[in-house]
Design a protein around this nucleic acid. Structure first.
Lengths: 235, 235
DNA sequence: AATTTAAGGTTGTATTACAAGTTATGGGTG
DNA sequence: CACCCATAACTTGTAATACAACCTTAAATT
């Protein structure tokens, strides 16, 4: 996985994996299309079916391919965000992870808020307002964390940049876990910042949106760090 | 075998997959630990080695397990915050345009350069210098693009933030494709900026490193956009 | 013409055998 | 005794074969 430099000894299934992946990347096999059968690939690449299946299994696991018994193997149309994210139900975050996560969020979300202020449409803003309000009024911690996560997700979508959106989707479980911890520690106080950010975005004030977001995350991180100290590092 | 109750018709390897995943999540098998051998699992779960291997392959693909030939299979030590392998499918399938990619890069890499200036050690800097020099001297476009990608990867590592590093690793294919296009269009001119960035990082000047990186990406994007216009949009 | 049946193709599983690589075990040598 | 090294004993990787489960298609029957 981490071989930008190809000093790693490649196994047969690794080569097949790269080869199949390449066929998808180059567009030789388009999304939704059926790829050659396993037996055909055996002959073409001159390897055993075991190696073919190993590669296909891995590509399926990361959501690139999808096999249907008796039918064939297809290139996935839309990314398998849902099925991938549901693979790991709940991951507990340790202290160092929280800090790194906050650092990463601050980088990506502050700028995202700025972009959102430039590109959000009326529907986006309305939905943000709604989520901020529901979060403020919610009393159930799990619901609160959920509205929290959705709000930040909505900002990502408002950037109109699919890569940013995708990063959020992929991190959504981790996000939820992090936000749940925050809510448990400090309640739904974050909702106030959400409303400020909404206003800034609505008035197309990019700089202000970034500033509020920066404050929002910084204070959250600080409080989480302080409270985290007292109780040592548990879950 | 003992089938966990499930209404849906689950394949054998699916059940093994769930079973193994559960052992990892519950902490029965801790990170870094070696899990039972495939033959042992065959007997315990009363299934063939094929099914065991299929499940292990999938768990490896999503970064939960790691197999080493002749040695055994181990639970990955990476924390849960980094299970974002699934960005790959999206990038590969949807092929976001160069503009979105550049926008994303600008967000994450400018800040990364700033963090790197604060946290890079001597080895990091030396390796950066080396990569910048090799890129400048290289005449082979593919090599040039490779050194280019490695340089930016090195900056990510210098941030000491595993999430940032992981995002780069996961985007590496897309990165390489993008950089290859850049090199084809404008040669290894970017190497000059790399050297400037090196100097800024070495002198721990965070603001300067960010500024150079911002310039670097902005000019690259501009040139790519101009040249891209002339020849229509390819890949 | 509509339905049923059969055939062929495709993925899923099992079994066996061996290759490739690592670790542990001994035994012989200095 | 300490050391080296061959060897055995695993462990994962690959191959080949056979069959099961499932789907699609087309021929055959009603």
């Amino acid at each position: 996985m981490d071989n930008l430099q190809n000093n790693a000894r490649q196994s047969v299934s690794d080569m097949v994996f790269e080869r199949l992946k390449r066929s998808i990347i180059t567009g030789e096999w388009k999304p939704g299309e059926k790829i050659p059968s396993e037996n055909q690939l055996c002959k073409e690449l001159d390897v055993s079916r075991v190696s073919i299946r190993a590669a296909i299994n891995r590509l399926s696991a990361i959501g690139l391919l999808e096999s249907r018994q008796g039918e064939g193997t297809y290139v996935c149309m839309r990314s398998g965000a849902e099925h991938i994210n549901s693979i790991i139900p709940y991951i507990v975050l340790e202290r160092p992870d929280r800090i790194n996560m906050f650092e990463f969020r601050k980088i990506i979300e502050v700028e995202s808020a700025g972009l959102a202020a430039m590109r959000a449409d009326v529907d986006n803003v309305n939905e943000m307002r709604d989520l901020a309000a529901r979060m403020r009024e919610s009393s159930d911690p799990e619901q609160t964390a959920l509205f929290d996560a959705e709000f930040h997700y909505m900002i990502a979508k408002a950037t109109r940049n699919p890569i940013i959106v995708r990063v959020f989707e992929v991190l959504q479980d981790t996000y939820y876990a992090l936000l749940k911890q925050n809510v448990d520690m400090m309640g739904s106080y974050g909702a106030r910042y959400h409303e400020l950010i909404c206003t800034a975005i609505e008035s197309r004030d990019s700089a202000l949106a970034k500033r509020y977001m920066e404050e929002h995350l910084s204070t959250s991180m600080r409080i989480a760090a302080e409270l985290g100290e007292q109780r040592g590092q548990d879950a």
